[in-house]
């Protein structure tokens, strides 16, 4: 890595640590994911006794402890969107590109720093929410040593990181924070789960980034599961979406006037 690239990374780190939105978006992601995960873990484990045998067979304590991620990921989306689109909404982009006219260095340094930070926060969140969730589930709990559980917990951290990274790519393409959030939030909160749960659209829905990526957090397969990919295959599909979004953002940044 050239020394110039290191300087830009340092600069981007200063940018990201010196705005309040970094703390509150990432803080919210932790609190919502862990808090909601705990709540749902308590509710579901209380329900265990009233389940029938089939349902008990599909009982997945690991995945249940990650239930808060559905909402927590929205904070990750906001983080990813703001990191990139703040440059545009504030006009800072012109100052930034005047300082670093090599646009690839600018964008990829920004994304690298933000992703590294998101990865640390997401991993910590994933482990905390797992342990907290399992503690709440008492005798039904899973252990980190059980087959597939460690993969699921690490995968949870990777999933949240990729969600943030995908949002950065989308924001780099769209520039406007309002437009980016207006598309990403309803998509991940509503559209994707609707497409994934209606049988007619399920075949398509399961290839959407979040549906595919969430597969890695499952330890026990749900009933009548016919997903054509495994946990890592799902994460790879999500990774492909992320690559497309980030490259799209780069190509547009390169070509556009700032």
């Amino acid at each position: 890595m050239s020394s110039g690239r290191v300087l830009v990374l340092k600069s981007e780190w200063t940018k990201i640590r010196s705005v309040a939105s970094t703390v509150w978006t990432l803080g919210l992601a932790v609190v919502v994911t862990v808090g909601l995960g705990l709540l749902i873990s308590i509710l579901v484990s209380n329900d265990f006794d009233s389940m029938n045998a089939r349902e008990r067979l599909a009982f997945d304590p690991t995945a249940i402890s990650f239930a808060g991620m559905g909402l927590g990921q929205l904070a990750m989306i906001v983080f990813g969107v703001l990191v990139v689109s703040n440059e545009y909404s504030t006009g800072m982009i012109r100052t930034s590109l005047a300082a670093v006219p090599q646009r690839a260095a600018f964008l990829f340094s920004k994304i690298a720093v933000a992703t590294a930070l998101a990865l640390v926060v997401a991993m910590v969140t994933s482990f905390i929410t797992f342990f907290v969730g399992q503690a709440a589930m008492g005798e039904h709990r899973a252990s980190l040593g059980d087959p597939g559980v460690l993969r699921a917990v690490i995968g949870g951290g990777l999933y949240m990181t990729l969600i943030a990274l995908f949002s950065m790519g989308v924001a780099a393409m769209l520039r406007s924070p309002m437009l980016s959030l207006g598309i990403l939030m309803p998509f991940f909160f509503l559209v994707s789960s609707i497409l994934g749960n209606v049988s007619a659209t399920k075949k398509i829905g399961q290839f959407l980034p979040d549906q595919a990526g969430q597969k890695i957090m499952q330890v026990v397969s749900p009933l009548d599961d016919d997903t054509p990919y495994g946990p890592w295959g799902g994460l790879a599909i999500m990774g492909a979406w992320v690559v497309v979004a980030v490259l799209g953002g780069y190509v547009l940044l390169k070509r556009r006037d700032a």
């Binding site: 705005v19 440059e87 504030t90 006009g91 800072m92 012109r94």
Partner: peptide, 16 residues
């Protein structure tokens, strides 16, 4: 106005 309003003057110049 080509700067992030949430950033302090010092940090704005520091990142540059």
């Amino acid at each position: 106005k080509a700067m992030h309003g949430g950033r302090s003057a010092f940090n704005h110049l520091l990142c540059l």
